[in-house]
Design a binder for these strands. Structure first.
Lengths: 341, 341
DNA sequence: CAGTTTCCCGAAAACGTTTTTGAAAATGTG
DNA sequence: CACATTTTCAAAAACGTTTTCGGGAAACTG
């Protein structure tokens, strides 16, 4: 099979401990023997077994990316993938091992977060997709293993949160619509009791009130963040309220925007000529629709990178647990038309 | 910390070996002691350390998903993600551990596939995104660790390949266009020396010849599978050949179809009224464009599932290395118009 | 040059499991 | 009841590393 540390030791005429010291750049070894061992190691194409390393070593360079609901949600491939890319980017740059774990409710009930870490000798994790109904949501609070959640507020000694200022971002997005002259705006909402929904709602209402506008209850269309529900909701909306002068649809996600545009086109309306539509998230689909969708880019890849970064710093004791708010960016594409106020 | 097997052994008044036997359902243990041990284990919330398990155990339940070029290619989030989902699906169903490794050229030069397996105690891997210029492309041939490649033909004792019949599929797609009355068809091609390009080209030409049609060299637009290149190429094409009666664009990927449609719309043409367009792959974007793109669905999630399945069977000695050709499916959406022949 | 310090490195314990070996206990057989 | 067989389990080796401990050699000190 492949050479082990024993083989290298024998070939170099030293003890295994010395080989270990040579491989890991420890100080207490003479330059000469280190050279020789490194040479022999290269000769034998020796690669340390990371499993043994992980078992033996006190401090681990393994971090995890934990995904909840990965197999259930079929729609959002872009989000998780960009997040992964960000994490892997950081891991590669800092020579970390990263392992991915998809968890569902059953798995969460079976083993705690700490147990999962223990199972795999993991120093900490970036956790994505956690719902407030997930068992981990509560139990993380008392975790002794550090972790970083994405876009979900969990309090706890060892838990950080990386997110955007969704309130401000949505406020900005709403303000943009208003600046373009829109006064009667319908809101295509996400899941009623989701945290993100509440934040975005707050942003929308803030912007409207600041401009002396109201958001009538009838102008709120609730969905579960599903495109089809947005389509159905919007179709019904224009049947019932089509004559009331609404000029824009403010959607809580890009997917909802896609559904909204579909419904509008299905009803023979043009976007943005007849109705303006904006989305939220910045997933890559927004560039491929017609028209391209004006949205707020959360830059999820950076989020992944910064989450891994923060996790690493927590593990190393460089930074304490904290909330990190990353910048967002209004991406103006083609789905909004300026109207006369 | 968390309870180890020692703790369980002590609490149950037996040796660690016995605990191991109880946990793994070995036969040589009395039902009574097994019961008792399992109870104690649950009591202590014992979870075996998988790292130690992997190190100690002869046969491993760890498989890997190896992704080449994951961080480089920014465009195709859908493909890798669906593949992952398929693999994880199988892994969860069969209680396997799965680890994901992103490799680039540097990493491939640094360590061989076998070394990578050895490092992580991996029994075998599903490999995706391998280019014929990748170092692993050749070295896999002699690997003693089983592996399954996706959509790339590598010969070798222990390497399987899961793919679609791209020639037949593309032939079918082309035939569909012809059946709809199209006679003058332009081909939006992928990277010139890629294996997939050659296969699809073959399929296209087969179908055309069978119907007594020709594919003029000027009607072939080469790209590197990039949307922008397709846009540019098609824009130029209709400037130069717009008057020659071409009615359809046959694209080697969905992304190219998106680029093609973009260019056509940019030039004031309608799809499918003025030009029909078809894509290939079945990524989810095809459902979100306007019009929705008629394409061939490769069902990449199944591919991932079946690849993991085959890998598992190879490891267990149930199936030998082999090539697996999965069914594809023509997905008729809205980007093709019937014309009078 | 004797005593101290520093530098190297070998030996062995440790990480948490599985697996092999062998022996005691239980059961079966005639 | 003596012997053979089977069942059950304890003890210890093994997996491939890291890390601790300690000691001899070399290098300083006065």
């Amino acid at each position: 099979m492949t050479a082990t540390i024993q083989d290298v030791a024998k070939a170099a005429g030293v003890s295994v401990g010395t080989v270990s010291r040579a491989m890991n750049n420890y100080p207490d070894i003479s330059a000469k023997t280190r050279e020789r061992i490194l040479e022999v190691a290269k000769e034998l194409q020796y690669r340390p077994n990371l499993v043994a390393k992980s078992l033996s070593s006190k401090h681990s360079r393994n971090i995890a990316l934990i995904l909840s609901g990965f197999l259930e949600d079929v729609m959002f491939n872009d989000f998780e993938t960009m997040l992964m890319k960000g994490c892997y980017q950081f891991a590669i740059e800092h020579d970390l091992e990263i392992s991915m774990h998809v968890i569902n409710t059953r798995i969460q009930e079976e083993k705690s977060y700490e147990q999962l870490c223990y199972e795999h000798n993991i120093a900490g994790a970036v956790i994505f997709g956690l719902k407030n109904t997930d068992p981990y949501f509560k139990s993380l609070e008392e975790s002794r293993k550090p972790c970083v959640t994405i876009d979900v507020e969990v309090s706890g000694e060892n838990v950080s949160n990386v997110t955007n200022d969704h309130v401000a971002a949505f406020e900005e997005l709403t303000q943009y619509l208003i600046d373009q002259g829109h006064r009667n705006i319908a809101l295509v909402c996400g899941r009623k009791n989701a945290a993100v929904t509440a934040q975005r709602m707050e942003g929308a209402v803030n912007a409207m009130h600041r401009n002396g506008l109201e958001l009538p209850k009838e102008y709120i269309i609730y969905t579960n963040f599903l495109k089809e529900e947005a389509s159905a909701g919007v179709a019904e909306f224009i049947r019932e309220h089509g004559k009331e002068g609404v000029t824009a649809f403010l959607c809580m996600s890009d997917m909802l925007a896609v559904g909204t545009i579909e419904a509008l086109k299905g009803a023979g309306r043009r976007v943005p000529e007849d109705y303006s539509v904006v989305g939220y998230d910045g997933i890559y689909v927004t560039e491929y629709t017609d028209p391209k969708i004006t949205t707020v880019d959360q830059n999820i890849k950076d989020k992944g990178y910064e989450a891994a970064h923060l996790l690493y710093d927590m593990i190393e004791g460089i930074r304490p647990a904290q909330d990190l708010i990353l910048p967002h960016k209004l991406e103006i594409r083609g789905s909004v038309k300026k109207v006369d106020a």
